[in-house]
């Protein structure tokens, strides 16, 4: 049983570790911890909370942007610029 698991795990273990470190580098506090490999559980937990915080941020920014757009004069120069930026 253990041999089967290890043989199966040997292939994917490496790439999973690679993906894990990649994921860790995406997290905002990964630099603070340096190169120390956090446990997988902790990493996944942080990923969960980070994704949630990103969701919140996106929502917040979207709200703010829509507020700004709604309060803006559509013929103004600013609106033109934003439209150009949004297009780009």
């Amino acid at each position: 049983m253990s041999s089967r698991r290890s043989s199966r795990g040997a292939i994917s273990e490496e790439e999973i570790n690679e993906l894990m470190s990649k994921l860790q580098s995406l997290l905002p506090n990964s630099r603070r911890r340096g190169s120390s490999q956090a446990s997988t559980t902790k990493l996944l937990k942080e990923t969960c909370s980070y994704i949630k915080s990103l969701h919140r941020e996106v929502d917040d920014l979207s709200d703010r942007l829509s507020d700004l757009m709604s309060t803006m004069d559509h013929n103004s120069a600013e609106a033109e610029i934003i439209r150009g930026l949004l297009r780009s």
């Binding site: 996106v58 920014l61 979207s62 703010r64 942007l65 700004l68 757009m69 803006m72 600013e78 610029i81 934003i82 930026l85 949004l86």
Partner: peptide
């Protein structure tokens, strides 16, 4: 998004 907001705010 934050860039857009930044752009929309002088």
């Amino acid at each position: 998004l934050s860039m857009k907001i930044a752009a929309s705010n002088p």
